[in-house]
Amino acid sequence: MNRIPILRLGQALLVTIQVDMHDELALALEEDLTQKIWATGARGVLIDISALEVVDSFIGRMLHAIASVSRVLDAETVVVGMRPAVAITLVELGLELPGIRTALDVERGMALLRRRDDAEAEGDVERR
């Protein structure tokens, strides 16, 4: 079975979904990412879905599961690049992705993760 590649980008992991995933591939990604967060100690996960023309409830569930597991492992998930037609459809489907941070593109997603790290670093200084 094919796997979706996971790239390391500083303290974050970047996943670019470029194919129309069948369900097993989506489940494999969930497992691979969890393993990789643990192995690398990544602080953030960026999931680029700009190539996805459809996000149905199964993919929505996968994004939600990834975000939840990441959080438990102290990493923040940001879903980036959602197409406008996909966003409209998701809301009508009843899937508003609660608890998942989103950004318009990878650059803004990275900025979001950096701000979180900076804020925490500041908090550490203040606590000392």
Binding site: V54, V55, D56, R83, P84, A85, T89, E92, L93
Partner: peptide
């Protein structure tokens, strides 16, 4: 948008 809606429903 309509394409995306019917494809999502079909999925």
């Amino acid at each position: 948008v309509d394409q995306t809606k019917i494809v999502t429903a079909a999925s």
